[in-house]
């Protein structure tokens, strides 16, 4: 009789990496549904296409690196990267933009840095920044919410727009798109318009922040809270990041409401919520100690505000995350929790 003699513990909870990753994807679904509802099916098409590209790249890289396919293909990490990047891209992005972005995320940012668990930078954000720098024009062409588009694109038109670059009638992508709310505030401020004037003047703004965006972000928030409750993510990073962002926004808003957007506008526009719950919390690249996570999150919140307000790009979440990724190991080292029985 052969007895097996593994080392303790002999039991294990059922959660696996796959569970963790799939829960993250599941938590993104409400936001994506609202997104598609308000902006058309483009985002869903992008996501599906991105997942297909990501899994292909993942398989090729695993083969090239001589890693077993089965456990790594099913871990779900490539899917998370694909969904996050696809959500961050404009919904009518041409297919090649998604392809280049995902391929870069998986091949370079993930596998060339050592693969799952070893990459120092969030792959989706590395790819996002790469695209922003290489294709600045395509990256800012956001379709307006369907309610504002005349007439809105149907599914076939969306598919044609993404994969063939054909737009209905004589329209071009430029005509179809409009600047995002964050963008507009920034541009108008440059033209000496006050924030309030901008908000009142443009149809792109809704009750709380950017029209449509406010609801998408609330849906992402709901997914994020669910992740917290399922203990897939800790509270420290989202709370610290949103708290720091709101604090910065409040300070400047109180000083000069003419020129600075309100904290609520900052929280519910752009990628703040998505970033706080889904991107900054990427465990591999975030700080890992409890206090370290607070510092890490706060750093992202502050940097996001700084880049949004004074930087050259409309949204700063991606840059802020990457900058703090760099600091994560150092933050961890200096924020070790106090061990039982030690001073």
């Amino acid at each position: 009789m052969k007895l097996r003699t593994p080392i303790s513990p002999h039991i294990h909870i059922r959660t696996t990496v796959t569970t963790v990753m799939l829960r993250v994807v599941a938590a993104l679904i409400p936001g994506i549904v609202v997104y598609a509802w308000l902006f058309g099916a483009g985002v869903v098409i992008n996501i599906l296409f991105a997942i297909a590209v990501a899994l292909t790249c993942e398989a090729l890289m695993l083969k090239a690196r001589g890693r077993p396919l089965r456990p790594f293909m099913s871990d779900g990490s490539a899917v998370v990267t694909a969904v996050l990047l696809a959500v961050a891209l404009p919904p009518l992005s041409p297919w090649w933009l998604t392809l280049i972005g995902i391929a870069f995320a998986i091949v370079v940012a993930k596998h060339l840095f050592g693969g799952l668990g070893h990459n120092p930078f969030n792959p989706a954000m590395v790819a996002y920044v790469m695209l922003l720098i290489s294709f600045p024009r395509e990256m800012v062409l956001w379709a307006p919410p369907t309610a504002l588009a005349e007439p809105p694109l149907d599914l076939m038109e969306t598919l044609r727009a993404i994969f063939l670059g054909h737009y209905p009638g004589a329209l071009s992508i430029d005509a179809l798109s409009m600047a995002t709310p964050l963008d507009q505030v920034k541009t108008q401020l440059g033209l000496e318009q006050s924030v309030a004037q901008t908000l009142a003047a443009s149809p792109a703004f809704g009750i709380l922040a950017g029209r449509g965006w406010e609801w998408i972000n609330l849906a992402f928030l709901a997914g994020g809270v669910w992740l917290l409750r399922k203990r897939i993510i800790g509270w420290q990073i989202p709370v610290a990041m949103l708290g720091a962002l709101a604090a910065m926004a409040t300070i400047f808003y109180v000083i000069d409401p003419e020129h600075y957007a309100s904290p609520l506008f900052h929280l519910l526009s752009g990628a703040a919520i998505l970033g706080a719950f889904f991107i900054a919390t990427d465990p591999v690249t975030a700080a890992t100690t409890p206090r370290g996570r607070l510092i890490f999150g706060a750093g992202i919140g502050i940097l996001t505000y700084v880049i949004r307000t004074w930087g050259g790009y409309p949204d700063g979440v991606a840059f802020a995350v990457l900058l703090m990724n760099m600091a994560a190991p150092t933050i961890d080292y200096y924020t070790q929790p106090r061990v039982y029985g030690r001073k």
Binding site: T16, V20, L116, G117, V284, T288, T289, P337, V339, Y340
Partner: peptide, 19 residues
């Protein structure tokens, strides 16, 4: 065994408060 994804689940349950 998969690579460590630094999720911190281990840290949350360590009775000695180690990392």
């Amino acid at each position: 065994a998969m690579p460590c994804i630094r999720c911190g689940a281990c840290m949350d349950v360590c009775p000695v408060n180690l990392l």
